[in-house]
Amino acid sequence: MTTLTDSPGRGASTPPPAPTTPTGGAGLSLYRVVHLVQVWLLPALLVVEFVAFSLLSPFFLTPQNLTNVAVNAADLALIAAGLTLVILMGGIDVSTGFAVGMLSWVVASLMAAGQPPIVVFLAALAGGAVVGLLNGMLTARLAIPSIVATLGTSALFQTGLFALWNSRDIFSTPVFPFLSGGARLGELPILVLIVLAVYLVLHLVLTRTTFGRSIYAIGSNVEAAKLSGINVRRVRVIGSVILGLLIGVAACTYLARVGVVQASSGGELTMLAIASVVVGGTSILGGEGSVLRTLGGVVFIVVLDNGIVLAGVPSLWNGLIVGFVILVAVSINGLAVIINARKKRSL
């Protein structure tokens, strides 16, 4: 051992090794900071948002304003919930907005034709299921990357809506009273309760059922999912169909909110839905995230929109601020992924 310049015994002669679990250390390593930020960013942003806006506008924190915001968020919340499933599987859907627009035309026309509400509602669901099935089949069966497939269907829905609209705006009343903010249970709009119920159910499905596990598994490692005996295609298609059904419901609540179908109805929802999921902290690469986080993302985005208007900021700024916040959220996620990858080898 004479030729060694270092002291081999060094490690052994110092006190016994400290516990070597990465989470056990008390120090605030970069890894822990990023992890904490990743978990707490959204709650913190929500708090800042609420405090700031209530200071800026006395009207912001009134029950009336908040229920309004909640009711107006319904369609976005429903789409984002379904979209979370698709994104968790490592997919994406950029056709949701125009799908809502096109279906809302169908709903409005059926209403105008005097069809009974239940028929109209079921038609919206059926239309949504077809939309979901179409997107699901294109991606799962024909193996077209979801971004390409849904860009295609989005163009299809947009053109479809334009052709159907045919320069005639259709005005409409809500299909069911409870699909607008009007019907209430005590103080709470029934619509808000329905949305919350959807989130609760999806949360339970994702965390407590084999189907939910399969969704995370597919997003985490498709090959391994296949080898584990998961029917990847079927789960993908079912996920898309669930999103489609929620789009069908969203078309009804969208119509109840805006009251009219126009040439470009719904288009703005596509980006907002993706933003809600991502700001919520669900990984755009799949495998990680939850619908509850998406709900937080939805709240953040609709409150931002509302607060900016109430605070008298020119609405031009709105898009800028939302865009900026999304970039920040996504970079923090990205940073966490990188640092996780570096630290992952620790035992």
Binding site: R208, T210, R213, E288
Partner: peptide, 28 residues
């Protein structure tokens, strides 16, 4: 290796063969 890196070891162990009650509800 063909594991699911985002999921826990427990979830990995039972992937594709979970113990369930009705409706695919997991028996944790």
């Amino acid at each position: 290796p063909s594991g699911f890196s985002h999921l826990t070891v427990l979830e990995n162990l039972f992937m594709g063969r979970q113990t369930t009650r009705a409706l695919g509800w997991l028996d944790k």
